[in-house]
Design a protein around this nucleic acid. Structure first.
Length: 634
RNA sequence: GCCGAAGUAGCUCAGCUGGUCAGAGCACCGCUCUUGUAAAGCGGGGGUCAAGGGUUCGAAUCCCUUCUUCGGCUCCA
């Protein structure tokens, strides 16, 4: 057989040769450093036979930043962790231990709970293993053999994995630990130059909260200590961009234990909030949406009709009124909008009807799920419900996707699209879901939006196109969502009169493009590192009078800027100019104007964030600011 | 909700093998200075050490419960 090397030369090998054999044929050093082989771009363990004629790429310990090479390193590190845990905690049952972005984890069922102190001991044990050195052996056995073996070892999770595994079963052994594992793995532990356990957490077996909760140990590993240090350094820098930290530093919002998960918006945070609201109102108006306002609390009967009582009650705040009546604070706007639509006989001439409302919603999120602005109990969705006929669905979905692209383009953020399909607790028949899912797929294709499929991730009333973005700490959050719903209108008996003088079914598109204003603001705080563009900045211009006698002059300028529609502010504290400039810098204020003796007579000294200082007249400054702000003011 | 960790002045933190342990810096207030592009000087106020209960002669420090926060899991905009 032969393989093709990256430089296009061909290498003759005996039949059945492995990646390691190929590396040996090229050179002993390469063989020693080999970590992973890619045959025609597909990763495989270096111990496995190569396909004949494959284009070969061998990743080595020098590919210190290659995600695939790092995954192999970390996967092997996870096995060292499991070996150490089994030695230190006899009776522990092992589950799974894959590499993940930036590290790895391994799930265990411990006979007795462990804590951070145990974690330190486990890490020390792994370091000892690394000192001794380990080598991995790979073997393949039948599923029956594997099952018998893990049953004998008292490893129920491994037995379950064997039972659901496809194809041959492979085992990897290092030290006294043998793991059911697909691989690939390192040859030896020598390349693991840095190893660190990072945290301890509970995790449900197979990600299902009905299953047993296991103990998950997170860690990371690198090809060098320097890389680990750099990783930790990056984490530190990311923490500086954390919106919870910047929210306090920039005086945007805070939380209080008297209402967990509900932000208190300070004046500066509210300025950002309102800038987004202004944008939302203007664009909605331009795109044919009508603003509406509906109640915050409704009788339980409404929630029974909508299906929320059955599907969403656990997340709702209930208000007992008397023995017979219970109200609930709305977690979504849709039922209210259904009532609004149904309050009149609707003609086909009215459709599509686009009702927009950015009302406060309350969801009783699990206490452990709350997270700054990105996971709150008080949510403001930039919500809208589009009521349309079957024929209008495509056009309305198009409108939503164009709108969505415009909005995200303004912020320069590029979310990933997900098609979320029918969940287990869905309402309605499969045929209806076939139709609504099909419509969303066609729309994504028309707009050439690539997406991944989230099986079963849809809402109980319809499939969704969801947009996801990662925050400063690499956590993924859902922002916008576009949902096509045939269930809710039929549960509310909504119809419209057609040209044929008959009633026709109504379809509803639920759409929130920012998603929630709270979460969106959390994300953009991190995206901009707190340095908002001019149109969003809480304070756009700050005036600094040089000394007491320039206060009146500075006040006048500040008033004129406010008159021109800008958020201008005066800092006339009795601090040195240097101190006040420093504070303005730390607050990331886009434009700072120093006003003193010279400016009373001539041009203003303008300090622009990131660009240094220059001089211009007040009129020039206003014109310039208007020019900068224009795109977002439409 | 579950697993692990934490909660000391507005913020960041020290003190935590129980006994001058209630402290520091920044912030705040007052006075002096009247400031020219990233921190002027001096002085001062401020905390029932998250809340409640317990152990002890004595608790910020040890134990229990609750609340909140942080890292995950589940769930979700």
């Amino acid at each position: 057989m032969k393989v093709i090397l990256p430089d296009a030369t061909e290498l003759e090998l005996p039949d059945g040769a492995s990646g390691l054999d190929a590396a040996r044929a090229i050179g002993p050093k390469l063989a020693e450093q080999a970590v992973l082989v890619k045959a025609d771009g597909v990763s495989q363990d270096i111990r496995l036979p190569l396909p004949n004629g494959a284009k070969l790429q061998i990743l080595t310990t020098r590919d210190t930043h290659d995600p695939d090479a790092l995954a192999v390193l970390r996967h092997s590190a996870a096995h060292l962790l499991a070996e150490a845990v089994r030695r230190l905690h006899p009776g522990v049952k092992v589950a799974i231990g894959p590499p993940i972005d930036n590290g790895f984890y391994y799930d265990f069922e411990f006979p007795t709970p462990i804590n951070d102190t145990d974690l330190e001991a486990i890490e020390a044990e792994v370091q000892r293993e690394l000192g001794e050195g380990r080598a991995w052996e790979r073997e393949e056995i039948s599923a029956d053999e594997a099952r018998a073996r893990f049953e004998a070892e008292g490893e129920p999770y491994k037995v379950e994995l064997v039972e659901t595994a496809e194809g041959a079963i492979s085992l990897y052994t290092q030290g006294d630990f043998t793991d059911l594992c697909r691989g690939p793995h390192l040859q030896t532990s020598a390349p693991i130059k840095a190893f660190k356990l990072t945290s301890l957490a509970g995790a449900y077996w197979r990600g299902d909260s009905n299953n047993a909760q296991l103990t998950r140990i997170y860690g990371t590993a690198f090809f060098s200590q320097k890389d680990l240090d750099a990783h930790l350094e990056r984490l530190d820098q990311a923490r500086a961009r954390d919106h919870r930290r910047l929210g306090a530093e920039l005086d945007l919002f805070h939380f209080d234990e008297h209402s967990p998960g509900s932000p208190f918006w300070h004046p500066k945070g509210m300025a950002v909030f309102n800038a987004l609201e202004d944008l939302r109102r203007r664009e909605n108006g331009r795109r044919g949406y009508s603003e509406v306002r509906t109640p915050l609390i409704y009788d339980k009967a409404l929630w029974v009709t909508s299906g929320h009582w059955e599907k969403f009650r656990e997340n709702m705040f209930l208000i007992p009124i008397d023995d017979e009546h219970t109200y609930a604070v709305k977690p979504m706007n849709c039922p209210g909008h259904m009532l609004l639509f149904g309050s009149q006989l609707r003609s086909y001439r009215e459709l599509p009807l686009r009702f927009a409302e950015a009302a406060p919603l309350h969801r009783n999120e699990l206490a452990g799920a709350l997270h700054g602005l990105t996971r709150v109990r008080y949510v403001t969705q930039d919500d809208a419900h589009i009521f349309c006929s079957r024929e209008q669905i495509d056009g309305e979905l198009d409108g939503c996707l164009v709108y969505l692209r415009y909005l995200y383009g303004l912020f320069g953020i590029e979310p990933r699209a997900e098609l979320s399909t029918r969940p287990e607790n869905k309402l309605g028949a499969d045929e209806e879901w076939d139709f609504t899912e099909g419509k969303l797929i066609e729309a994504l294709d028309r707009h050439e939006i690539s997406y991944f499929v989230g099986e079963g991730e849809g809402s109980f009333y319809g499939p969704k196109i969801d947009l996801h973005i990662t925050d400063a700490l690499d956590r993924s959050w859902q922002l916008g969502t576009i949902q096509l719903d045939a269930q809710m209108p039929s549960r509310f008996g909504l119809t419209f009169m057609g040209r044929d003088n008959r009633e026709h079914p109504v379809f509803v598109i639920h759409r929130a493009l920012f998603g929630s204003l709270e979460r969106f603001i959390g994300i953009i705080i991190e995206h901009y590192g707190g340095a908002f563009p001019l149109w969003l900045a809480p304070v756009q211009v700050r005036l600094l009078p040089v000394s007491e006698q320039h206060r009146n002059g500075a006040r006048e300028i500040s008033a004129k800027l406010r008159e021109a529609g800008f958020r201008a502010e005066l800092d006339e504290r009795d601090e040195t100019l240097g101190k006040r400039i420093r504070d303005s810098e730390l607050e990331k204020i886009p434009v700072v104007v120093v006003f003193g003796e010279r400016e009373s007579e001539a041009a203003l000294a303008v300090r622009t964030r990131g660009e240094g200082q220059s001089t211009r007249s007040l009129d020039e400054l206003v014109a310039e600011l208007e020019h900068v702000v224009a795109p977002s003011r439409g």
